[in-house]
Simulated assay, not measured.
Amino acid sequence: MQIQIKADSRHSQLSTFIKLGGNSFYRILTRKNYRIPKNYLQWHELASLVALMAEEHENHKLDLAQRFAGHRHALWMVQDAPIYCLDKDLQQLFSQTDVGDESAIFKDLITHLPIHSLMLLLPNGGVRSPDGSCVDYLNIHCSDVNHQEWSTGEKYGLKVKYLAHEHDTNIHFGAIDTQGTVWFSGWGINADGKLEQRDGNLGRTKMVDLDKKFLRDLRNIVMQSLMFLSFEQTGIETVTYKETIGHGFATQEPKERCFYPRWLRLQEKSQVSIDKGGSHASPSPHWRRGHWRRSAVGEGRVDRKWNWIQPVFVGN
């Protein structure tokens, strides 16, 4: 859901906030001293966004989109949830993969999720809203009626309460783009795995068809990322210090304690496939779309495992 909070750009607002010393939440967050790769949203700006949203998460003067987004940002903070960087090549593969509507995968997704709150950093400039603004991160949270502890927390002088919801499981995502617009949406999953999605307004600004399409594009990134985490990525790969500095700079890690995000990317052995096609009858270069498939595995092949059939670029 969309609402414009200020006409000024996000960067200039946050720069002023930082120069003035931020607030108590900002000072707490910056002590973590996250080091993030250069082509992603940097830590001081992300910490500013979280600090401002967390401070306002119970402000009833805000509309529902802002309050829900604030609640999820605050949850991420009090739960000390991780940061992931989505690799640009993997993001492209996600855009060429069909999620499908088979209920089994959504039901299985909830039981396999390794985490329930995360900040997903997107490559700078890789995701553009209808007005040309950049969405460079997504705050993702999964809530479940049987696990209220996933959606509450108290730390750093901040108490985040559980918010009741209509579906058995809800997956929400939110962000503030580079023009200061709040985006918030998600979907519900019921006990039978049925997916419930709505495109209604939570903010004061009425969404047009382009906005709704854009939210569906963001929703696809969230779905694919959670499915990749649940069914494909077998281990945690942490960003290295060398990946956070420019070429030609010193490679020795700083002495002070630093935190590093996790990568969401393909392992080196798994590369994007390029099919050269035939000779004289080859079609124009195009993507052969990927999909998710449930396969029989284990002794007697009685167990089931979801596998990602990656898209293939077909061309001469």
Rank of each mutant, 00 (worst) to 15 (best):
G248A: 10
K213W: 05
K212I: 09
R262V: 13
T251F: 02
A250Y: 03
G246D: 03
R219Q: 05
S270R: 15
S230P: 05
R216E: 11
E243G: 05
L229T: 05
Q267V: 11
L226C: 04
W263A: 01
V222G: 00
G235H: 15
F214L: 06
S225H: 06
F231H: 03
D217K: 09
E268P: 10
L215F: 12
L215S: 10
T238E: 11
F259S: 12
I221P: 06
T244A: 09
Y260Q: 12
Y241H: 12
Q233K: 06
T240F: 01
E256P: 09
L229Q: 04
P261W: 03
Q224C: 08
L264A: 03
R216W: 09
Q233P: 02
Q252K: 15
D209L: 13
R257A: 12
S225R: 03
G246Q: 00
K213Y: 08
M227F: 07
R257I: 11
C258W: 09
K242F: 11
K242Y: 12
T234W: 00
K213C: 07
I245P: 00
E256L: 15
M207I: 11
R257T: 11
V239G: 02
L215N: 07
L226Q: 05
E268M: 12
Y241D: 10
T240G: 07
D209H: 13
T238A: 10
T234S: 04
G246S: 01
Q267W: 08
V208D: 14
F228V: 06
F259Q: 08
P254Y: 01
T251V: 05
G246V: 02
K242A: 15
Q224W: 00
W263D: 00
F259K: 05
T234I: 02
E232S: 06
I221A: 07
S230W: 08
E243S: 04
G246R: 02
T244C: 10
E268H: 13
L266Q: 07
S270G: 06
A250F: 01
S230G: 05
L215M: 14
A250I: 02
Q252N: 08
Q224R: 01
K269F: 11
T234E: 05
F231P: 05
L264Q: 07
K206V: 15
Q252Y: 10
F231G: 05
Q224N: 03
R257K: 13
L229H: 03
K242C: 11
P261H: 04
E237S: 06
Y241R: 06
E256M: 14
E232N: 07
F231K: 07
K269R: 13
